[in-house]
Design a protein around this nucleic acid. Structure first.
Lengths: 238, 238
DNA sequence: CAGTGGTCTAGACCACTAC
DNA sequence: TAGTGGTCTAGACCACTGA
């Protein structure tokens, strides 16, 4: 009897819950709609709140939900595509970066290594913020060694650093993407709690064969899909 | 009284814990070393196990730790850089992809949309697995519409599909990266539990101005740093 | 088999938002 | 101030690994 019974390894409750919720989101809820609160959902499914939260966390990680303390859990719109591989062919229509200040500071060790500067050597640090569709999607720190912009002596404002960098004639760039969690300052810029999952994009800007600057941009992982290559417009509507 | 008291928002315990642990990892542990078990660590820090786990989860997400059921928690090596922007200039030395089978199936709706096929139209699906440094880093599903490889009638084996695709003369490609969680089948290929965080790379392969194939590759987010652009060798040693 | 991390419970209190 | 999600506790049991 029943050798066919797969007896499938007992699927964790939260995993099954997630599947059920995901289907409900597809069929019964509209984007932006508010879900019942966690205590009620947990009761309705007959699980502890912590278990329900485990399912919600995964759905939020996948960009299906958005949770805000004091407000509630809402159905998230599809992720927006943000272009990363900066226009290597032709100018991009508009850059939605906003510079948010500059200072002179010692970069993290990993950045210093990429720049080829000494571990304790201060560099220009420009903080920028990227806004797309009215929402903050990324916070970036651009590290520029003083050697790259010799015209600037001492502390300089953000615009001056960026201008000098452009004058340098950047040859190309190099990028890496990895998963991280938002530091407190980035989290505030992104309107998220500290520790929120982010996609960290590290860009090396080259000029004359050397690394002229390094940018470390943290993108909201819940709301963004990073696009590389040809100018990919958002696919949501197609 | 005491308006000056900033009264700094009480930092969550798990957040503080994470910081403390991260520093300990840097100074007191070697890569591969096994940490004390969760119950002991929790006791040592005077917190509940769930709180300790919250800190460990974040550190694992950041690629600092690796946890294996039945074994323990170990200090993870630095993430390995895996090249994504496939050699558009010149052949890449070696492709560490291994094909793992093929079938004919109806793709997910999102993929069908990219391919421009009907929602219920079956296509060739090639499953590949990428191994780097002896470890599985990615599981990919390559979707190839039958229209792209007219020479193949009916079900075909993986190699035949890939060969025909090459003969097509691919023009270029287009990529997007987003955060996801591993499905059960991918998880098994990646030697992780279902739900593990992954970086999903969606590649559109072009031929003659059309989308000839779409690849959906899931990379282990804990162990991988995806690199784009120039052939970036692993930076770990530099 | 003992020991590990993974899941789950049933509570409690806190920080935040919006009315 | 009422209601939300975020944090935290102190337990319990399960699934898996390796000796």
């Amino acid at each position: 009897m029943g050798t066919t019974q797969l007896d499938t390894v007992p699927e964790p409750k939260y995993w099954h819950l997630k599947t059920v919720l995901a289907e409900a989101l597809d069929s019964e809820f509209a984007v932006g709609e508010i879900l019942p609160n966690e205590r009620e959902l947990a009761a309705r499914f007959g699980v502890a709140r912590a278990t329900l939260r485990q399912a919600l966390e995964q759905l939020e990680l996948e960009g299906r939900l958005q949770r805000r303390r004091g407000v509630g859990t809402t159905v998230a719109p599809p992720r927006m595509g943000v272009s990363i591989g900066s226009a290597k062919d032709g100018g991009h229509a508009e850059d939605d970066w906003e510079t948010a200040g500059a200072e002179t500071a010692v970069p993290p060790a990993a950045v210093a290594r990429l720049l080829g500067t000494d571990a304790d050597e201060p560099v220009h640090v420009v903080r920028r913020s990227r806004v797309t569709g009215g929402q903050p999607v990324a916070a970036e720190l651009l590290y520029v060694p003083t050697a790259s912009v010799p015209a600037l002596t001492g502390p300089a404002d953000a615009d001056a650093v960026l201008r000098e960098l452009q004058n340098l004639g950047l040859d190309g760039e190099d990028q890496a993407v990895e998963l991280g969690s938002a530091r407190a300052d980035d989290a505030k810029q992104l309107d998220r709690l500290p520790g929120a999952p982010v996609l960290v994009v590290t860009t090396r800007h080259f000029a004359e064969g050397r690394t002229a600057a390094v940018g470390v941009a943290t993108y909201r992982a819940d709301t963004c899909r990073l696009t590389f290559g040809s100018d990919t417009v958002s696919l949501s509507g197609v």
